[in-house]
Design a protein around this nucleic acid. Structure first.
Lengths: 228, 228
DNA sequence: CAGAAACGAGAGCAGTGCTCTTGACAGTGA
DNA sequence: TCACTGTCAAGAGCACTGCTCTCGTTTCTG
């Protein structure tokens, strides 16, 4: 439609990126909810109203930042060193996720913290959000194929509505037993619960610093889903 | 010192409670970060500045609300029906926590969501925050004493710094093996990770509605810590 | 080259948390 | 009874916010 293709477009793309960069900097210092369009525009030496040429609203800026954060986390997790040993790879992914979260706590809070009031996450965020779980599922599937995944004997096979819901995951990781897939969701929630507790200060007084606890949990969760 | 002891004090206490009630109502509708002192004062038919006689700042109001939320959640969990069967009691506590969280999502987000920027949780919140984990520890200890807790054979005994950190928990639940205590922290983070995912919309597309998944996770986590 | 589209600047609106001052009132000791 | 003291609500005001609208200017395009 509106295919302007030249200098103007390049300038626009650059400025859009500059705005996001400034927003991320502000995010890191004052947090998501205190993110101020006026402060960003001040930083960039422009007037606040000009910002609305690039993002229709504060929410739209936030959406862009959220998608970027999901993508950055997904990329960090996918870049975790893979050596072929399923348990080692699993632990490496856990470590990569934690490292990213600790390096970018405000961006982590943006995607895994409380939803921003009045802000409705658009469907656009679903795909980048699923990169980490898809990565774990892929690892499990490969482990299954190479015989390194043994269904834990005490893992109950889902029935009823739970079995139905699991089918979505079966389609994503064919061959992995439903009982393991349910456990995958359990450990997925465990991972991010653990990270949120660490980053949000809930572990202070018990397992903080959490390095060793996190390492132990990684191993035990790998065993919990049946990796060996 | 300033010991006015009569009608004035009573009026003050009542109005303080009224302010918190109005704040909670607003919390439930617009969320924590959009909580406005002016809107509360408007609701109560007073002028915004008068509110500062009762709460020195917005943060102080939030702190009061946070402590109330922790206490409400703790009370709800402690009120879970206990029938003597450890696994049944465990599941009942899980269900009570979830019920409270689903009934009070904004208050849940207030205490388990991202920390409010610029807001530092005072030490006052630590004690009410520990009611739920203490409840779980107490259950485990009683199960241990009655022989209903068997340390899972694949639960590694913590060593090094992790063993040291576990000692704090050993003091709280004497008799419960360290390996089980580490697993208790794991399932504790799992519980609230699962709840956060459900309430914050992260499960949409996979395990939502989460009733059966939650029930299955409750049971599997009870087994994971060694309850039978 | 003319028209259209995009752009930055600026003023302005309604709202926010918070501070300070002012005048009214309640409780208390002489 | 009366003056004193501390508490209270009210209101104006400050600096900030997201957002809208208008106005000239610049840039692209048919």
């Amino acid at each position: 439609m509106n295919a302007g293709r030249t200098a103007r477009e390049r300038a626009r793309a650059e400025l859009t990126e500059e705005i996001k960069t400034a927003a991320r900097q502000q995010l890191a210092t004052v947090g998501a909810e205190a993110l101020s369009l006026r402060a960003i525009s001040r930083e960039l030496g422009m007037v606040s109203s000009a910002l609305y040429r690039y993002f229709a609203s504060r929410d739209e800026l936030l959406t862009a930042l959220i998608i970027d954060a999901y993508d950055a986390l997904g990329a960090a997790a996918e870049a975790a060193p893979a050596g072929g040993d399923p348990v080692g790879d699993w632990i490496a992914i856990y470590a990569a996720v934690r490292d990213w979260a600790r390096a970018n706590p405000q961006e982590y809070a943006l995607i895994y913290g409380s939803p921003i009031s009045g802000y409705q996450a658009p469907q656009t965020t679903v795909q980048p959000a699923s990169r980490v779980p898809l990565l774990l599922l892929g690892l499990l599937q490969r482990a299954q194929e190479s015989g390194r995944l043994v269904t834990p004997p005490d893992a109950p096979t889902p029935s009823g509505a739970l079995a139905q819901q699991t089918e979505v995951l079966v389609a994503l990781a064919p061959g992995v037993p439903p009982a393991v897939l349910v456990r995958t969701v359990i450990v997925w929630t465990q991972l991010f619960g653990m990270l949120s507790f660490e980053l949000f200060g809930q572990l202070v007084g018990s397992m903080d610093p959490a390095d060793e606890f996190f390492a132990s949990a990684s191993r035990q969760m790998a065993a919990f889903v049946g990796l060996s």
